[in-house]
Each structure stands twice: as structure tokens, then as C-alpha cells.
Design a binder for these strands. Structure first.
Lengths: 327, 327
DNA sequence: CTTGACTCTCCCCTCGCGGGAGGGACAAGA
DNA sequence: TCTTGTCCCTCCCGCGAGGGGAGAGTCAAG
């Protein structure tokens, strides 16, 4: 008969706490070899130490008990490795998230709260070619890329040059209901023969409050946020879809910091001399929702300034190069 | 009066869930500017969006709410930065732990379960110089380094050469009570005039079961574990302190993989021809405890083999170079 | 036989919310 | 004005992986 250890000794052997061992017993991860029927005492064997060691390492890596169990019960090496690799990959991607969060936190704390410049502008009705579709917000990016690829392809094959920067209209439903109509358009002087999803379109005239976004398109939420804040503070109404104008984009330069995008907020009629006043009548609940969808990623007064040197280091690999493909 | 947003709109503005916002209110992290006394409705202002953003980033970094609160309420930039830096440092050290755990896990899963070779040996009484002291287990490493430094210094100044490899005795109390007597010794042929902590010592004769550890001293727990397992399986008794002999150490070569350490387990008298049998009489409860203190870090059968390519990548810095000292 | 160390079960606590029940509040449409 | 649907409220339970402690039984050494 092999030597039996009570839980306290086994705890010292494995560096697992007594509480943890009892818990592992409860969930069936590591059962004692014997339980005294009268006293209820748990007894473990020396041969269980290695198993406990493995459990401890995986727990140190934050692997959930269920998954550790899967590793221990895996019928073959391949399926076991699959579980381990999946966990390590989760850890790596989590680490990436952490690093990008540190970056964005630094941006948030460092950047001076540059006041946004908002310009009022009357835009006339504009002929264009366009793709119009109802889209889920989550699909926007992909839709956007394909739509403009298609538009430019048709203009190119028709031998027609744009008469101005391309742009898009975003229906307010998009921000209220997570789904709404989007129009991707490219202005053209003359009629163009179009086919497929592409159609002739007249971009409607509007009075716009316009903010210019300088830098990567991926950070445009900052400008949206700033404009949203601006609009909220002045309690401006909104009429019609939000616009974007792509003044300088990836087609023009690879330097993302050179990119320029205008965000246009359609306000009520006004003269350039007299900017629009608050318009309580035309400010229904829907309006608040709309702004709510925008007003984010502003710069931070209350905790700002001087946290200058938060940095991030190298990317990390927990998985080595030839990771387990052949397992 | 500024525009007020109900919790749902504010949730959309900040990407914080309604539940989270209510929780932050409960714990006093982010209070609404107004609470309708009759309906209990919470109302937030646009100016609170940036604060919420900051909260969200820190939460994404896993900072506890209490600490986020400390950041927001910090009276000056320096104390605020202190909190942030402390958190990022915790994250970095946690990451280091993760990486070393991956390494040790790989060792555990990869290394073939090499059976340990145990040799029985009779060692005679040996004159030596030694430092004897009662030590806490946690202080062992430091104590050990200083003790041998002192021993070698005195031998050197006395112009005496060791007559054999240095070694140490570890009383079993050390493993049972976390504290016990340790003797660091260096064998010498003749009497040496000694001073301070160092004294003349006779290393007692003993029957030893000896295991040889090859490699870094930091991994000696593996050999201890293997020897402990060996002893447990054969139910060998123990008499007297455990020994270590430092055959090849840092003084001899910088290549840690070349280091050699013997671990000696004192058994009862036996002839080399007839290895000691189990000795139930002399195997009190204390004995089990002693083995329990050793038997760890064995190699792993149940989940072993072929997980060959788990690797670790670069170290990570979340804190940049000139981190915030001047903050 | 006593004493002290050890073990058992059972219950509540953590942290940062998520899920849901049950019920009031509010804006839009009929 | 009523309904309808959507919001919002509070209150309670749950997770994961145990930690802390109460109250009671067990075990081995002196």
C-alpha cells in the first residue's frame, strides 16, 4: 500500500492551499485517493503530486478550472495542446489589448484639450454617383471600403474624374437604432452611365456645422466626440443625415497623419453672420440619442496634464515560433 | 442649464453599461449630477463623459475601482501618477511571473521523466570550519550566500585550502517548522584559527542516500522532489539533518548547467550491499512532514510528452524609460 | 488523560458587475 | 385620454476561485 498523506501534508507538498485542494475535490479536478468514511478525512498519494503541480502552473497562468480539467482529461496530445494553445493565445491578445489601452490612456491624459474649430458652411446641391444601402453599424467599415472601391472602379472604367472630394451621408437612425441608411458618394460634373449598386445621386443642399479631423481615420471618433460636445453645449438641432467629406485619404497619401476628414453636422437655416441659435422646438428626444451616439472620446480636463512618459514596450509572444502545429 | 442625459444615453456616450454606471454611483466613483427625487432617475451631464472615459480605460487595465477613485481624487499630479505607476508596475511584474510560469510549465511538460539515480554511501566524520545558526526558511538563500562568503574569506586569510567540497546540513525542523538549524561547512585537514561566527566543526558520520543534481542551483527543488519521492516510495526513515554537497558551484564555473550539487538523505545503518529496508518503527508523523516539505516538482507522467514549442517572447515594458520620477 | 494540532462541514465574503423580477415613469401614437 | 412600448428604479441572486472563521469531531504525542 502506498503512503497516504492527509490534506495538510499534501498541501505543503504541492504548495496548494488546503482550501484550494478541497475546492478541487468538490469540482472533481483532483480527487483524493481515499476518504475515511467515518471522519471524512481526505487522503492523497505521492503520485498525485505531479498532477497537482501541473494544476498549479496552469492556475498561475489564470486558466479556469474547467479548462485545466479539460487539459488533464484530454484523450490525446493534440487535443490537450489545442486547449493550452487556445489559452495562451487568449493571454497574448489580452496583452495586446492592455498595451493599446495604455497608449490610448496616455493620449487621453497627455493631449492638451485642444478646442475644436467649428465652421458654418452652406453647401449647394451636388450631382454625384453613389451607393445607397441600409447597413448595421458594426458592418460599416467593411461596407464603406467595398462601396468606395466599387465607385472608383466604375468612375475609372467610365473615364470620368471626380469633381470634388468624396463623401458619405449617415442617417441619424444609424446612431439611434444601430442600423440605418448610408450613402457613399463621389461628386461628378456630368451624368455618368452607371450599373450595379451604383446610381446617379444628388447630394442635397444643407447648412452644416463642420469640424476638420486631422490624422488617422481610425481616430475620427475623437473629432466626432468633440463636435458632439460642441453641439450639445449649444443645444443645436439636427436636420438630415450627418456627413463626412474625405479631403485627404489613403488614396492620396500613405502618411496617415496627413489625412483630412470633415465631419458635417446639418443645422437649421442660418446666415453665416448669425450662427444658429438653440432650437428647443426641434430638439426631440431623438436628438439627444443622436448626440449621445457621438459624444465620446473627448479630452480630459479633470485628470489631465503631465503624465508624459507612460510608454509601451515590446510586443510579447507567449507562443514560440513553430507553435504546436504538428502536435 | 446644461443638458442632462438619462443613464441609457450616458451609457451609449461612454460605452459603459447601465449596470456599471449604477455600480459606480453606488460606490461613489461617478455620481450623477442630479437624481430626480420622485422617480429616482439618474441624470448625467456632457462634462462627465471625459471622466467616464478615463474610468473606462483604467478599468480596461484591470485597475480596481478603489484605485481608480484614488486617481480621480488625487490632490496633485504627483500622487496621481504614483498610483498609476504602482499599478503599471504591478502589471509588469505579473507579466514576468506569467512568462516564468510558462517556462516552468514547459519544463514540466517537456522533460522526460528521467528516473533519478540514488546512490548509498557511508561518509566518515570530517573536520571542517563551519557557521551554525538557526534560520527561517525564507531567509535561507541570503544567509547561505553570506555564510559561505565569510567561510571562504577566513580560509583565504588563514592561507588554508579546503580538503573537499563544501556542504551544508539542514535540520529537519527547518522543513517542519519553517525554522531550524543550518550548518554551512568547508572541510579542512588541519585545525584553523577561526573567529567571529566561524567555528571548528566535525561533520558527523552518516549513511546517506545521495542524489546528484545537475544544473542551476535554483532548480534544485526538482532533485529534492525526486529524492523525496524516492524516499516516500521506499518508506525510508530519516535520521539527522539533510545534507548538500556543492561539488561544482559558481566559484568553479559560470556555466550554470555545469553545476553539480549532491543532496544527501540520512538513512539508518546499512551495508552498501543491502540497501536499507523500510523501517516502520522509526517513521513517526514527523517523518511524513519532512518528506512533504521535499516532495515537489517531480516530473509529470499523466500530461507529459511532446508539448515542444511553448516559448516565451520578449520582456515587456508598460512603463517607458524616464518613467514619471519627476512627476 | 490531556493537550494541541489537525480535519471536517457549513456559511458568509470578496470584485465588478450581469441577469432578471417586479414595479413605477415617460413620450409617442390612437 | 388611453395604450403601448421603452425606459428606469430597487432588490436579489449568480459567477470564479477560493479566504476567513465558527463549531465540532479526530488524531497522535506526552
Amino acid at each position: 500500500m502506498n503512503v497516504r498523506f492527509p490534506i495538510g501534508d499534501f498541501s505543503r507538498m504541492t504548495h496548494l492551499s488546503v482550501k484550494a485542494l478541497r475546492h478541487y475535490h468538490d469540482v472533481g479536478l483532483l480527487d483524493p485517493v481515499e476518504i475515511d468514511p467515518t471522519s471524512g478525512y481526505r487522503f492523497y498519494e505521492a503520485s498525485q503530486v505531479p498532477v497537482a503541480q501541473v494544476i498549479r502552473r496552469f492556475r498561475d497562468l489564470g486558466m479556469p478550472l474547467e479548462e485545466v480539467k479539460a487539459v488533464l482529461l484530454a484523450p490525446d496530445v493534440a487535443s490537450r495542446n489545442a486547449v493550452i494553445v487556445a489559452h495562451l493565445q487568449r493571454m497574448e491578445s489580452q496583452l495586446e489589448d492592455t498595451q493599446s489601452t495604455v497608449v490610448s490612456l496616455r493620449t487621453l491624459l497627455e493631449r492638451p484639450p485642444a478646442p475644436i474649430a467649428v465652421e458654418y458652411r452652406s453647401v449647394p446641391i451636388t450631382p454625384a454617383v453613389a451607393i445607397t444601402e441600409e447597413v448595421d453599424v458594426e458592418d460599416i467599415d467593411e461596407w464603406w471600403a467595398y462601396a468606395f472601391a466599387e465607385l472608383y472602379a466604375q468612375l475609372h472604367s467610365a473615364g470620368v474624374a471626380p469633381s470634388g472630394p468624396s463623401g458619405a451621408l449617415y442617417a441619424s437612425e444609424l446612431f439611434e437604432d444601430e442600423r440605418g441608411e448610408v450613402v457613399a458618394f463621389i461628386p461628378v460634373k456630368d451624368g455618368v452611365s452607371v450599373s450595379g449598386r451604383v446610381s446617379a445621386f444628388e447630394v442635397p443642399a444643407a447648412e452644416l456645422a463642420v469640424a476638420l479631423h486631422r490624422g488617422p481615420f481610425g481616430q475620427i471618433d475623437q473629432t466626432y466626440g468633440a463636435l458632439g460636445t460642441y453641439v450639445v453645449e449649444r443645444e443645436l438641432g439636427v436636420e438630415g443625415p450627418i456627413r463626412e467629406h474625405y479631403l485627404v485619404g489613403p488614396a492620396d497619401t500613405d502618411d496617415e497623419s496627413e489625412h483630412r476628414t470633415e465631419v458635417g453636422w446639418p443645422v437649421f437655416q442660418t446666415t453665416p453672420a448669425a450662427p444658429p441659435a438653440a432650437c428647443a422646438e426641434r430638439r426631440p428626444r431623438r436628438w439627444v440619442r443622436l448626440v449621445a451616439g457621438f459624444a465620446e472620446a473627448q479630452h480630459v480636463h479633470p485628470v489631465a496634464v503631465e503624465l508624459e512618459s507612460l510608454g509601451v514596450g515590446q510586443p510579447v509572444e507567449l507562443l514560440g515560433d513553430g507553435a504546436l502545429e504538428g502536435g
